[in-house]
């Protein structure tokens, strides 16, 4: 589904990603862990198409297409979804109207007709239940006045509505208490499926207790320095990141 080869990217002249290689197959969940400043959020930003980052080398292939050639909205329409670490508040833009526009943009892209009002509302109801999002929130302006937990739930709600092929969760666990974390994780688990993959970016192992990954990668200093299964996350939890840093620096 997603193949990243030798990806290098910089912002304002500082190289952050120094050659990332990653292969994500359909249905897989990959966790990317790493200390602060290792490049985790840069990776998600580059995949979603944030303009501030300059890709200096490497390639990203998503379902047979060169992902880096696509505009952010084209990536979304092709099935990439980024759940933001800091979801943006947009006063005056209704959550529901915006989602409808987004769904129709995607449908038009795939040569489909606009979604009917009835189907849309049925879908909204169903997906709201998935993340236990209050109906009143869905009708408000995008994220305006939402609590931290509500914003993250709204991200997962949007993801559920847009039915992506690849979901990238950028530190979705940050700022969540344990109850909210469980709700969010539960929502993600319900979206897991044979044709849908996830990249879960996180600093802590905690989230991975609830969203159990198939693979765990450690990102350090712009490179994936170690890959393994879910036990790697536990090892990191136990030993911290210093152990990895030392090992990398010795090599």
């Amino acid at each position: 589904m997603l193949t990243i080869k030798g990806l290098k990217a910089s912002i304002e002249g500082n190289q952050i990603l120094k050659g990332i290689n990653l292969e994500v197959k359909p249905g897989e969940v990959h966790a990317i862990m790493g200390p602060n400043g290792s490049g985790k959020s840069t990776l998600s930003s580059v995949l979603a198409g944030r303009e501030e980052y300059e890709v200096e080398g490497g390639e990203v292939n998503f379902l047979g297409q060169d992902l880096l050639e696509l505009e952010p909205e084209e990536r979304a329409r092709e099935g990439v979804f980024l759940a933001f670490q800091y979801p943006v508040e947009i006063p005056g833009v209704s959550n529901i109207n915006f989602l409808k526009a987004a769904i129709n943009a995607k449908r038009q892209h795939h040569g489909m007709e606009d979604i009917s009002a009835k189907d849309f509302m049925t879908m909204v109801k169903e997906k709201q239940a998935l993340v236990e999002l209050k109906q009143s929130l869905a009708n408000r302006s995008v994220n305006e006045g939402f609590s931290g937990g509500e914003k993250k739930r709204n991200e997962i709600f949007q993801m559920a509505m847009l039915e992506p092929k690849l979901g990238i969760l950028d530190e979705t666990d940050s700022g969540l208490d344990i109850d909210a974390l469980k709700i969010v994780a539960n929502g993600v688990n319900k979206l897991r499926g044979e044709d849908r993959s996830f990249i879960v970016i996180t600093h802590y192992q905690r989230l991975l207790e609830y969203i159990v990954p198939d693979f765990v990668h450690v990102l350090y200093n712009g490179r994936i320095v170690r890959s393994g299964d879910k036990s790697l996350a536990l090892e990191l939890e136990e030993k911290g990141y210093d152990w990895i840093k030392e090992e990398v620096e010795t090599v």
Binding site: A48, G49, R50, E51, E71, P72, E73, R75, A76, R77, F81, L82, F84, P87, V88, I90, V93, F98, L99, A101, A102, I103, A105, K106, H109, V142, Q158, L162
Partner: peptide, 16 residues
């Protein structure tokens, strides 16, 4: 930031 957010959900830049 709001523009990028809307784009990342599939809205074209002009529409956003």
């Amino acid at each position: 930031e709001a523009l990028f957010y809307l784009q990342s959900r599939g809205l074209g830049k002009q529409e956003a």
